[in-house]
Design a protein around this nucleic acid. Structure first.
Lengths: 223, 223
DNA sequence: GCAATAGTGTCTTTGAGACAGTATTGA
DNA sequence: TCAATACTGTCTCAAAGACACTATTGC
């Protein structure tokens, strides 16, 4: 390690990690990146980066910068989950990792992978690889928060494409929660919601057409 | 500022702040300290301190150290609330403040004040003074989380004395939520709870004696 | 007896859950 | 017509809310 990169022991390493969730026909997925550098080189990890106080106005801006520069993706909302800290979680020494979570709509899921220089990959929650540092615990914390939201019927609209059917939405919620939901109950609760807007467009197919909906402008999942 | 205290611009100032809640007959209170040093000297602020990586194994240990050294109080549980960050929130430059919250039982409320060298004081939520930095926002974030917990019937047992009556407990919950609760509903929900233990002791007075309860050993408010 | 507080019973309303039923398309 | 999926209706049950009622003490 050369001298200019040397970090005094009195200052912790501050970085941000991002649990980026997407969804496709197979269900909920999370984006992992294969680490290109030491430490933990070539291991899978949540995408992240070191804070740059001269560039980032806030920690969340560091998260946005990582998403933009490393993954070429922009998300409407980023949520702070929690902080992980300590002398042992990173071999470089005392460190702080602030975990953020975000949801990307289906259209952008493929964009992320393609524009990438590093090796990044979407993983099903059922088939997660071993992960570097404490990232397994981090992912678990992000998932718990996501599930708690959906459980209390905050809709994961940022995972949905621009237009979607109620069945699509239900499948997504089911993928997040890991259990099936009753169609009638699901729709009954949605009746009172102002977060989704009924469109006069219908999805074709070999059966009864389903009505399309869209998210209300300015919908806030992180609320 | 002397050279040995100089912090390179590339490393943010990392500190912990603590929202310490207590309760008495007048309701819920929060502990504020009058700042003894620049910046914001003599302004009211949440108690806090700068991280010491050589002493603190984790951020939460920094919070514990502040409670112990500055306030001479020990609490069973400390909960991480969220992180506040940015170049402008503290005049010393780019900073990170990790906010923690804790509840102290009634017996310790006076202990905190008395053993104190600094000026510290319990404030009612209705009579909060202007606060330094972004501490008003921090307190608001901690309160929101506390209320959400109590709303979903996680009992604030760490605020209660060793023995308490159900009416005491209800008053405390009401003080936190800022609204009255129905006695019958409150007690009905408590029937199913394993978190409080019925005692065979009763509170005297000029009316029907009330049964005492105590918290279950190992009860976890932060869940 | 009365005042004061502790504690219970009960009616109504709300919403979750389960599940059967109807509706609309293409083939 | 049938298969397939969209959508609705309805019954049951559990819990919330409101509020009246009974219980036990000191005076």
């Amino acid at each position: 390690m050369n001298r200019s990169n040397h970090r005094p022991r009195l200052y912790p390493l501050v970085s941000v990690d991002i649990a980026l969730f997407g969804s496709d026909e197979q269900g909920l997925k999370v984006l992992l990146a294969r680490r290109a550098r030491e430490p933990a080189v070539s291991q899978w990890a949540l995408p992240g980066g070191v804070l740059r106080p001269l560039e980032d106005a806030q920690l969340v801006d560091a998260a946005r910068r990582v998403l933009r520069d490393k993954l070429a993706v922009s998300v409407p909302q980023i949520e702070q989950i929690r902080v992980f800290s300590g002398a042992d979680r990173d071999p470089r020494g005392w460190s702080i990792a602030v975990l953020f979570a975000a949801l990307v709509p289906r259209e952008q899921v493929n964009a992320v992978v393609k524009t990438q220089v590093q090796a990044v990959e979407w993983f099903s929650l059922q088939e997660l690889p071993p992960m570097a540092f404490d990232h397994a615990e981090q992912l678990s914390a992000a998932l718990t928060k996501l599930r708690t939201r959906v459980e209390s019927y905050v809709l994961p609209l940022h995972l949905m494409p621009e237009r979607f059917t109620l069945t699509d939405l239900q499948r997504t919620c089911e993928a997040i929660l890991g259990r099936t939901l009753d169609k009638s109950v699901f729709r009954r609760r949605l009746k009172g919601s102002t977060d989704i807007i009924e469109l006069d467009e219908y999805q074709g197919g070999a059966q009864r057409p389903a009505r399309f909906y869209r998210a209300r402008e300015g919908f806030d999942f992180t609320g």
